[in-house]
């Protein structure tokens, strides 16, 4: 009996190879897109046809079904970016760079949507589109950090070097975000009477939770799908840059 002692690639190593990653995750895109679409349709149906108005917020509670998931994603995407940054700095995982770069514009977009829906909810509830309340203010600062990261990526020509510098900045930002949140909360309670309505104040009955959960999964799966697609594009773009350089040198392909 012969023993097979050829080294096997662990799933981790297999994921680390961009080509393998492409081959492995490409079949996932279409099913993911399908499930996401179905969840969105279901969520919209629940949100508009199969859920009651809140006894306190009235029909504006329906804005929460798009606001809460985007607000969650604005923080989740940053957490994903920070984990990828660790992957870049500690393990030098080649896909961590790609994932970090793909996530930044997605996070910025979801944060902008969270701010937009928040202000659409704030106008009927608070009577103003913008309130300097702790939550909205720290989300705005988070948006600035996202946009700064996107700008930093674009400023570098060499993407490998950019990845490491952006990773350092992302981690410093991750340390700072809780401090910013704390300071902004401190500041806004100082400047305002405590009469501001708190979004998480009243506990929601189950009939309102169902659309919220469906929408929550729809948005999260959408992020996963777009992140995978953007990572594929980034891997291909790097291959393209190498090929173009080789072609420019006049090598045969």
């Amino acid at each position: 009996m012969s023993i097979d002692d050829t080294p096997k690639m662990s799933w981790w190593n297999r994921l680390a190879h961009p080509g393998q990653f492409l081959a492995w995750t490409r079949p996932l895109i279409w099913p993911l897109a399908g499930v996401t679409t179905a969840l969105y349709l279901l969520g919209l149906w629940f949100a508009f046809f199969n859920s009651p108005a809140d006894y306190q917020m009235g029909d504006t509670v329906r804005i929460m079904y798009v606001h809460v998931p985007t607000a969650w994603l604005s923080q989740f995407v940053y957490a994903a970016m920070a984990v990828s940054a660790l992957g870049t700095l500690v393990w030098r995982h080649p896909l961590a760079d790609v994932s970090m770069k793909a996530a930044a514009p997605l996070g910025a977009a979801f944060t902008a949507m969270a701010l937009f829906t928040g202000s659409m909810w704030g106008r009927p509830t608070w009577g103003t589109f913008w309130e300097w309340d702790g939550r909205m203010t720290s989300t705005l600062i988070l948006l600035f950090i996202y946009l700064g990261i996107v700008a930093l990526w674009r400023a570098f020509d060499d993407q490998l070097r950019a990845a490491r510098v952006v990773a350092v900045f992302t981690l410093v930002g991750a340390v700072n975000v809780p401090i910013i949140k704390f300071s902004v909360d401190w500041w806004s309670t100082l400047h305002q009477p405590a009469s501001v309505f708190r979004a998480d104040g009243p506990t929601m009955p189950g009939s309102l939770l169902t659309p919220l959960f469906v929408m929550f999964f729809a948005f999260t799966l959408l992020f996963v799908t777009l992140q995978l697609l953007a990572m594929h594009t980034e891997i291909r773009r790097r291959r393209l840059v190498t090929l173009e350089r080789r072609a420019a040198r006049g090598d045969t392909l």
Partner: peptide, 17 residues
């Protein structure tokens, strides 16, 4: 111009306090 843009959001707590 990039450094001020990156740093200003991180400096918000310093301004606040």
């Amino acid at each position: 111009l990039l450094a001020p843009i990156l740093i200003a959001p991180l400096c918000v707590p310093v301004l606040i306090f």
